[in-house]
Nucleic acid binder design. Structure first.
Lengths: 215, 215
DNA sequence: TGCATTGTTGCGTGACGTGCAAGTTTGGGT
DNA sequence: ACCCAAACTTGCACGTCACGCAACAATGCA
């Protein structure tokens, strides 16, 4: 049931049921929020749709927002792992661009949840900060990954933190632009363009546009 | 009463009283949160400390978090205005560095509220995303300001958004580092170093450290 | 002074989020 | 096959949050 069922069965029936319930709650929350609006959404309605008790909801999520936009802890780890696999000699911004492009592809291709989330945030701008905060997780793990790559101590050097913040910010802006186009633009291309701005030291007011037109 | 009373009296007694109540609630919330911890803090306690009714609190703030870490709308506007005053020929990253250094000075010098907020977030890491999200406002107005400066359309060009995200991120990391040193380091210097990383296109794992030591 | 505007307050209400003590299911050991 | 301990679910209770509403008080203005 449910949907694409991304990650395959890890262990026993217990863990499977748990993951199933978690996803059912997530999807019920997203679906109902999109159908009737964020304001109208109650936790009770979510639990009824997922056929669990109200109390159980709070065994999985700490809040309604957590279910809707809560972080996917694995993804940040995957990002860091991807960065670790890039050749050591590669320039940081090049390695980051490559890794984030991969991430962009996974976003764009088979992730209905992200489409639903994008649409939800578009329809309810109040949630923008919430989603923004969700990227916090990315930034922290990425800071550590960059520090490991360059041998800096993030407690002393500004470098890893600034790089991580800039990279995540670029990704965020690219995703926002992608959402603005309704998913018609190529997210990997947008990410590439965004990282070009970073690589150029924030110069160039000219040639970076969503559509390559001169205007 | 109260504290430094930043912005001077704008108009009639009514507006003054309003601003006074608002600040009283802000300070009461911060003080109580620092004294007894974020978890123990209730809105009722805030209203008692500020000597207003519980209901009045919600005429000023939409939530407890809003009172503690809510945005200061004026500041973003000041930042944008400062950017508009920079010479038109100046490179974006140079102009931004200058403006954010000014902001850094105002942070460091006479802003006990920011010290209190920093300490609060340090003591309660759960609030990190909340504060992180608070920078959303900065980023949006800054995006518009950069777009105006460069003649880009932020709905089409990635450039303004990426620049704003990178700049705000650099500022954020610098402030975090500043907080980590207990305010002993020079915030403007840290901001300058952070922007140097951006200006260099995220290269250079080497020379940017909090203390200039080689080690 | 009189009046419209605006801020404050108390009350009532629905939802949120959590601790606790049951009951139920699962996995593992014998 | 059985039993047991661990883990998950559930109902209940409780305190807080956040807001709508209508009365009350303070303010600015003519």
């Amino acid at each position: 049931m449910l949907h694409g069922m991304t990650t395959s069965a890890p262990a026993g029936r217990r863990d499977r049921k748990k993951a199933e319930t978690r996803e059912a709650l997530r999807w019920a929350a997203l679906r109902l929020a999109l159908e009737h609006g964020y304001e109208q959404l109650t936790v009770e309605a979510i639990t009824e749709a997922a056929d669990v008790s109200l109390r159980t909801f709070f065994n999985y999520f700490t809040s309604k927002d957590d279910a809707l936009l809560g972080p996917d802890p694995d993804r940040a780890a995957l990002l860091a792992a991807g960065l670790a696999e890039r050749p050591a000699g590669e320039a940081p911004v090049v390695a980051l661009r490559a890794v984030f492009c991969e991430l962009a592809e996974s976003f764009a291709e088979r992730q209905p949840m992200w489409q639903a989330r994008m649409e939800l945030v578009r329809a309810n701008p109040q949630l923008w900060p919430q989603m923004h905060a969700g990227f916090t997780e990315f930034e922290r793990t990425l800071t550590a990954a960059v520090a490991a790559r360059t041998g800096c101590d993030p407690a002393v050097d500004l470098y890893p933190g600034v790089v991580a913040a800039a990279a995540v910010g670029a990704m965020r802006v690219a995703v926002a632009q992608w959402r603005a186009t309704g998913g018609s633009a190529s997210l990997p291309d947008l990410v590439t363009s965004a990282f070009d701005v970073l690589a150029a030291g924030l110069t160039a007011p000219s040639p970076i546009t969503t559509q390559g037109a001169s205007r």
